[in-house]
Amino acid sequence: MRGRTHLAVGERRWVHGAFGLMAWIVGLVYFFPVFWMVLNSFKSEQDANTSPKLFFHPTLDRYKDVTKSATGLLSFGEAFTNSAVVVIVSTIIVLALAIPAAYALAIRPVHKWRDVLFFFISTKFLPVVAAILPVWILARNLGLLNTRNVLIILYTGLNLPLAVWMLRSFFREIPRELIEAAEIDGAGLKGQLTSIILPMAAPGIAATALLCVIFAWNEFFYAVQLNPVKGSTVPIWVTTNISTRGDFLAKLSAASVLACIPVVLAGWIAQKRMIRGLAMGAIK
């Protein structure tokens, strides 16, 4: 008996070790390209394009190159502002729509709520390419091409189903009695939302908002189709650093790093909340 338990414990430790090692390897494999990109962004074009070099003379010149605005071209500042506006406005709209929707689906389920929920997620089944032509024609007819507004509308639409699903599962975590108690205590919808539901679901709402921000910030396909010139976002700006003549790897790396920073920052700041929020949502 004793021997067996010892063996079992030893075995488990070995398995744990193996899994841990694998996790590290996978993590490093994922991280390596990012690491290489950051490294490249501090190199000269020459260094970046010659055989892989770990030791070099670091320079911030590439960052200066990419942030320098040239006339006629999309500047970093413009792109950044556009992205910020599009991302923040669309996320606020998403939350403003998704919170009442999630309330209606989780706390006071409307008739046929399952169908409604399925409908939301079914909008994600279609390939984006299949929709781009009608969307483009619509946008053109409405005079929305090359505006921030078209992206705000699209990103709201893109993130809404996800936000409704996530928020619904967070709202369901709130004990029913709490909402009933608030109801008896005289709280209307507004009172229930502001005093009970929103404070309790705050981590979940933060996680949802963060995901919306990240998806909107990173979105490229719609941005490049509908908004390639004025009002363009950071992902488009990154690609403008690809030039047809001369080397651009280091420059592109620097631009990419800049594009990543806000997302990484947001993720890092919200890390704790987000993991809690995501884990909470995953239970249901």
């Binding site: 004990p175 009695e177 709490l178 009933e180 108690a181 608030a182 109801e183 008896i184 205590d185 005289g186 709280a187 209307g188 005093s195 009970i196 404070p199 309790m200």
Partner: peptide
């Protein structure tokens, strides 16, 4: 009549206290 208009108060089994208050 809605619960809040019935002029009642309820004590729940698990007390249903508002955790953040």
């Amino acid at each position: 009549v809605r619960p809040r208009d019935r002029d009642i108060a309820m004590v729940f089994q698990n007390y249903a206290l508002y955790p953040q208050l």
